[in-house]
Nucleic acid binder design. Structure first.
Length: 526
RNA sequence: UGCGGGGUAGAGCAGAGGCAGCUCGUCAGGCUCAUAACCUGAAGGUCAUGGGUUCGAAUCCCAUCCCCGCUACCA
C-alpha cells in the first residue's frame, strides 16, 4: 500500500463549469478511485479560485457583494460532486477560508525570508474600462480591444519573485524526472522554455486596483497577492500547511506521490512558477504534473462567441452520469485534444455500454435464471475454452496498472473491455443453450453437459465480477449495478491482488435481474 | 523566427527496419441466451509528397507541403 495525493486545477468562478473542466475532474476522479481501489491511502483535492478582480467586477454588475457572487458560483462547481459522481475528499475555496489565507501568507513569508521577493516598479498599459493591463500585442492599433480607447501608461510598485534564480535547479529536477511532467512532449516544452532563460514575475497588485479583494501581502496593506501565490498555494494550504498539520505531513511531506492534474494552458505556472515558489519556501515539490488536452465540441474550440459551450448538467441529464464519464475517459485521449460530438457519444454508449457490457450482463443473468433457478453454479473442470478468459483476466492487473501509471484511463478501459468482448465470444463458443438441451436429455452426455454448463455460466459471472471491479473508477454507479444483478457486492477491502484473482466469485450467489442497465439511445438522425 | 508533436481505411487511432493493424461505421453470413443485441467473414489504404540508405522502409536519412502546441506575468 502506498500513498497518493492528487489535485485538479482550481477553476475561476466567473462562469458555470463546462465540459472541459468536467474532463479534468472526471479524469482526476478516475485516477483517485483507482488508487483507493488498490488500497492506497488516497487524498483528492479540488476547489475554486476566487480572488480575481473579475469577480469584483462581475459582482458590481449584478449588484451583489463579491463574497456572495463567488459563494454562489463556487456552489456550481461543488455541485459537480453529485452530478458527476465525484469522490473528492476536500474542496477548497480561496476567498473564504482561513486555512488558505494563513497558508498563503506563510508561503509568502517563507519565500520572502529566503530573499526571493522584492519591490519593483511595474509599468504597463492599463485600460480603465477593463481594469486590467494589456501587453502591446493584445492591443488593436494601440487601442483596448474591448473599449477601443487608448490605455494609460500606469506605474505601480509591486512585489516580484526571483524566478531567475531557479532556472538551473528546475532544469535539473525536471530533466531527471524528480519533478515528472507527463506526457513527454509537455516536458520538452517546459525544458525548452526554461532553457531560454527565466525572468522574475510580478506577484502582487495594489490593494486599490484590486479593490481590496484578495489575500493581503503580509506587512504591506497597500498590496494584495496576485494569482500565483494565492491560487497555486491551494495545493498545500488545503492540507493545513499553515499549521503543518497532520494532513500536510501525511500527504505532502511523507508521501512519494503528489500529483497535479492540469490543462495544457496552465502548464508553465505549474511546472515552472509553482515549483520555484516552493523551492524558495523550502517546501517539497509536487512529484508529478500530468497535462491533459482540451475538449472540442463537434470539432470546434469551445468558446462563448461560438455559443457551443456545453454544460455538463445538460448531458448528464440527457444521458446519465456514467455515460458521460465513460465517454470522457475512453473517447478523449487523456494527453491529446479530443472531440465531444453527439453522434460519437451515442455510438460509443450504444456499442460499449449497451451492446457489449449491458447485454452481456443481461444474457448471463438470464441464463443463470433459466438454467440454475437464479443461483450461480460452482465451476467444474476448466477446459481450453475457458483458458482465453483466464489468461486475459490474469493479464489485466498489470496492464491496467501500467495504463494508470501513465495517466491513460482510455488505455485501461480498452484493456478491460477486451475481457467483455472475450466473454461475449465465449458465450457463442460454448453455447450454453445447446448444453442445456443436452443436459435435459439425460444420460452420460447429459451429465457432461451439466458440468460444462455450470463451468461456463460461472466463468461468465466471474468475468463480469472482474469487469465490474475494474470499471469502478470509470463508471462507479454502473459497476455497482452489475454487481447488484449478479447478487454480489463490490469488494471494498482494497486488497487488489485478491479482488483481481480469478475465482473470487463465491458460487451460490442469487442473481437479481434488475432490468436494462444501459438502455439503448436513439441513433442520431442521419 | 526558434523549439516540440503530428499527417496510416469513411471516422477515431495503434504500429518505429521483416506479410499494413485495432475500434466504430458499411456489406454478407451464423446464432437464438440476450437490449434487432452477440459471433464469423468480406470490402475498404500509393502509410502527406519527392528523393536517398537497405536484400527489405509507415518505420532510418535529406528535402518539400500541410496541421497542431509552446515561444512569459494571459489559469
Amino acid at each position: 500500500m502506498s500513498k497518493f495525493y492528487i489535485t485538479t486545477a482550481i477553476p475561476y468562478v466567473n462562469a458555470r463549469p463546462h465540459i472541459g473542466f468536467a474532463l479534468e475532474i472526471v479524469l482526476t476522479d478516475a485516477v483517485a478511485r483507482y488508487h483507493r481501489l488498490k488500497g492506497d491511502d488516497t487524498w483528492f483535492l479540488t476547489g475554486t479560485d476566487e480572488n480575481s478582480l473579475k469577480n469584483v467586477q462581475a459582482a458590481e454588475k449584478e449588484g451583489i457583494s463579491t463574497a456572495q457572487l463567488v459563494e454562489r458560483n463556487a456552489q456550481y462547481f461543488h455541485d459537480l460532486r453529485d452530478l458527476l459522481n465525484l469522490s473528492f475528499d476536500d474542496f477548497i475555496r480561496t476567498a473564504a477560508e482561513a486555512r488558505h489565507f494563513e497558508g498563503v501568507a506563510k508561503l509568502w513569508q517563507a519565500a520572502d525570508h529566503n530573499g526571493d521577493l522584492y519591490k519593483k516598479t511595474y509599468r504597463g498599459l492599463y485600460c480603465v474600462g477593463c481594469e486590467q493591463f494589456y501587453t502591446e500585442d493584445e492591443l488593436i492599433n494601440g487601442l483596448c480591444p474591448e473599449h477601443l480607447t487608448r490605455p494609460d501608461l500606469v506605474e505601480e510598485d509591486n512585489y516580484f519573485f526571483r524566478l531567475s534564480r531557479y532556472g538551473d535547479k528546475l532544469l535539473e529536477l525536471i530533466e531527471s524526472d524528480q519533478l515528472r511532467i507527463e506526457p513527454r512532449t509537455r516536458k520538452n516544452e517546459v525544458v525548452s522554455f526554461i532553457r531560454r532563460g527565466l525572468e522574475d514575475f510580478s506577484v502582487s497588485r495594489s490593494t486599490r486596483r484590486a479593490k481590496g479583494w484578495g489575500v493581503p501581502v503580509p506587512g504591506d496593506p497597500d498590496q494584495v497577492m496576485y494569482v500565483w501565490f494565492d491560487a497555486l498555494g491551494n495545493y498545500i494550504t488545503a492540507l493545513d500547511y499553515a499549521s503543518e498539520g497532520p494532513l500536510y505531513e501525511r500527504y505532502w511531506l511523507d508521501n512519494p506521490n503528489r500529483v497535479h492534474v492540469i490543462g495544457k494552458g496552465i502548464i508553465r505556472f505549474h511546472a515552472v512558477y509553482w515549483p520555484a515558489m516552493l523551492l524558495a519556501a523550502g517546501v517539497p515539490l509536487p512529484t508529478t504534473i500530468f497535462v491533459h488536452g482540451y475538449v472540442t465540441v463537434e470539432g470546434e474550440k469551445i468558446s462563448k462567441s461560438l455559443g457551443n459551450v456545453i454544460d455538463p448538467r445538460d448531458v448528464v441529464q440527457k444521458y446519465g452520469v456514467d455515460a458521460v464519464r465513460y465517454y470522457l475517459l475512453r473517447e478523449i485521449p487523456a494527453t491529446e485534444d479530443g472531440d465531444f460530438s453527439t453522434e460519437r457519444f451515442i455510438r460509443t454508449y450504444n456499442s460499449y455500454l449497451a451492446d457489449q457490457l449491458g447485454n452481456l450482463l443481461n444474457r448471463v443473468v438470464n441464463m443463470v435464471g433459466r438454467y440454475y433457478d437464479g443461483v450461480i453454479p460452482a465451476p467444474r473442470d476448466y477446459t481450453p475454452a475457458e483458458q482465453g478468459l483466464l489468461d486475459l483476466a490474469a493479464s489485466l492487473p498489470g496492464r491496467v496498472d501500467v495504463a494508470f501509471e501513465r495517466f491513460r484511463p482510455d488505455e485501461a478501459i480498452t484493456a478491460i473491455w477486451e475481457l467483455v468482448s472475450a466473454a461475449n465470444k465465449y458465450v457463442v463458443e460454448v453455447a450454453p443453450w445447446t448444453l442445456a438441451k443436452t443436459r435435459a436429455a439425460g444420460g452420460p452426455d447429459g451429465a457432461a453437459a451439466e458440468a460444462r454448463l455450470a463451468t461456463s455460466l460461472y466463468s461468465l459471472a466471474e468475468a463480469l465480477r472482474l469487469v465490474a471491479h475494474y470499471a469502478t473508477p470509470f463508471i462507479p454507479a454502473s459497476a455497482e449495478g452489475v454487481c447488484r444483478q449478479l447478487g454480489i457486492e463490490l469488494d471494498p477491502s482494497g486488497d487488489w491482488a485478491h479482488i483481481t484473482q480469478w475465482g473470487g466469485l463465491a458460487p451460490g450467489a442469487r442473481v437479481q435481474p434488475g432490468g436494462v442497465l444501459f438502455p439503448k439511445l436513439e441513433a442520431p438522425k442521419a
